[in-house]
Design a protein around this nucleic acid. Structure first.
Lengths: 249, 249
DNA sequence: GTTGCACCTGACGTAACGTGAGGTCCTAGC
DNA sequence: GCTAGGACCTCACGTTACGTCAGGTGCAAC
C-alpha cells in the first residue's frame, strides 16, 4: 500500500497534530514501530492515513504503560492483546502494592520527623535504617499475597482504626510490664483481661488468617530481640507471661 | 581516618553480607557514593567499619526510592533529610494517583475483553483508543488535585457504589430519551422525577465541589459529541430537556 | 542570492546497575 | 615450587524512550 492518492503529512505536522515530538517519531521509525509510507526525493518523511491510524494505536497502547517492543508485537498481531493487557494489569497491581507500602513508610518517617521538630540528621538516619531493616525482615516472612492481604485489611479498617490499634500496643505492653514487675500471677483476672486485649489486637492484625498468624509468630520467634529493640515490641518473657495467662482458663 | 586498626572486608565478603552484588559496590564507588577506606597493593578494595555503616545508610535510603545522587547529597549533610523525604513522599503520592488511574483503566479494559469473550483485536484496539482518548480529555479539564480528590471520593464510596452509579446512567438516559420521544412536557412529574435522579447522580460525582462541577460542565460543553459517541453520554438536547425539567419548579 | 525554517542523520546522555571480556592475585593442594 | 580454581581488577557495552545538541541539506519567500 504505497499510499499513492491520499493525504500525506510531513513529520513536523504529524508531531503537532499528535502532541508528540519529531524526535519521538524518528525514534518510532528507528525501532520499527512506525515507518512512514514514503519519502520525498530529499529524504523527508511522508506519512499516510494508515500511518496516522497506526500512530494513534501506538500512542494509546503507550499510554497504558506498555513498552514499545510489546506494542510492536501486539500491532503485528503476534500476540493476544487481551492477554497482554491482563499481564500488564497484574504488573501494575504489583507496583501499586509496593508503592503503597513505600508511601506508608515514607509518611510515617516524615510525620515522625515533623512531630519531633528538627530531628538531628544522625538520629533521623538511624530511624530510617531501622524502618527499612524492619521492612526487609517483614518482606522475608510475609509473601507478596500476604502483604497485599494486609494492605486490603488496612484499607477496610481505615486509617484511624489502624492508628488506634498501633497506639494501643505500647500502652498495653506497659501495663503488662507493670503486672510482671509487681509479680502478679498470670492467672489473676486483671492479667487475664490484659491478655484478652492482647489477643484482640493480634486478631485485628491477622484477622483469623492462619497463614498470617503463623508468619507473624515465626517472624517474632526469629527476630524477637531486634523487634524488641527497634520497635518497642514485647520481650519473649512477656510473650510467655501472656501465654500462661491465656492458658489459665 | 585511614582505618588502621579495625576489621576490613573485601568486596565479595561485603557483597554477601549486604545482599548486594559486587558490581553494585563497584558502581557506588564509581559514582562517589562509597569509596573503600583502602586498597591492597594489588588494588583490591578494603572496606572498613565506617564504610560498612555508610553502606547500610545508602541501602536504607535507596530502599526508600531515593536516587543515588540525592543519597550522596544527603549523606554529605548538604541537604535536609526530612525535607527531601517530604518531597519524595509527594512524588510517590503523585505516582500512586497516576498508577491507580492507570490500573482502573486497565482493569476496565480487561474486564470488557473478558466479558465479551474473545474480542476481535481490531475492536479491542478501537476500544483502547477510545478509553485513552477519553482519559486525555479528562486530564485536560481536571487538575491533578481534582483527579486526586475524585480518587478519594471513589475510595470512600466503595467499588460497588461506583459500579452501581455508573450502571444507573445508561438506564436513566434511556428513560429520559423515551420521554423525549413521547413528547412529554419537561414539567411533567415523571420527567421531574427523572431529572431529580439525574441531579443526584451528578451530585454523587462532584459531591458539591464547585470546581469539579464547573470542570465537568466545561468538559461536556466542549466535548459533547465525542462523549456522546464514545461513552454513550447524553446528547446536548437531553441536557437542555433536563434543565427545563429542573427549572420548572 | 540569501534568510529562515523544516528537515535530515549521527551520536551522546539519562538511572542503576547486569553482563561479559580479558587479565591479575591469592590460596590450597601436590 | 608449581598449578588450578576462585576472587579480584578494569574497561565497556546493553538496558528504556526518548532529549538534546551538532553539523549539514531542502525549500519557500524576499
Amino acid at each position: 500500500m504505497p499510499e499513492d492518492g491520499g493525504p500525506v503529512w510531513k513529520v513536523g505536522e504529524l508531531a503537532r497534530r499528535t502532541g508528540l515530538t519529531v524526535r519521538t517519531l524518528h525514534h518510532y521509525e528507528q525501532v520499527g514501530l512506525l515507518r512512514p509510507a514514503a519519502r520525498t526525493a530529499a529524504g523527508h518523511r511522508l506519512y499516510g492515513a494508515a500511518d496516522v491510524r497506526r500512530l494513534y494505536q501506538v500512542v494509546a497502547l503507550r499510554e497504558l504503560g506498555l513498552p514499545l517492543d510489546v506494542i510492536g508485537i501486539l500491532l503485528a498481531g503476534e500476540a493476544d492483546i487481551a492477554e497482554r493487557l491482563a499481564e500488564h494489569l497484574a504488573l501494575v497491581e504489583q507496583r501499586l502494592v509496593r508503592l503503597r507500602s513505600l508511601r506508608s513508610r515514607l509518611a510515617a518517617l516524615v510525620a515522625t520527623a515533623e512531630s519531633t521538630g528538627s530531628t538531628a540528621p544522625a538520629d533521623l538516619l538511624g530511624l530510617i535504617e531501622e524502618v527499612v531493616r524492619m521492612q526487609d525482615v517483614i518482606n522475608n516472612y510475609f509473601s507478596e499475597e500476604q502483604l497485599a492481604l494486609l494492605e486490603e485489611r488496612r484499607r477496610a479498617l481505615g486509617e484511624d482504626a489502624i492508628a488506634a490499634a498501633e497506639a494501643e500496643w505500647p500502652e498495653l505492653i506497659a501495663k503488662v510490664q507493670a503486672e510482671m514487675d509487681a509479680g502478679t500471677d498470670p492467672a489473676d483476672p486483671r492479667v487475664r483481661a490484659l491478655a484478652g486485649r492482647w489477643m484482640g489486637l493480634l486478631e485485628a492484625f491477622h484477622g483469623g488468617d492462619d497463614g498470617l498468624r503463623e508468619s507473624l509468630f515465626t517472624m517474632y520467634a526469629e527476630n524477637s530481640e531486634q523487634i524488641n529493640r527497634d520497635s518497642g515490641g514485647p520481650s519473649p518473657d512477656m510473650i510467655a507471661y501472656i501465654s500462661r495467662a491465656n492458658a489459665a482458663d
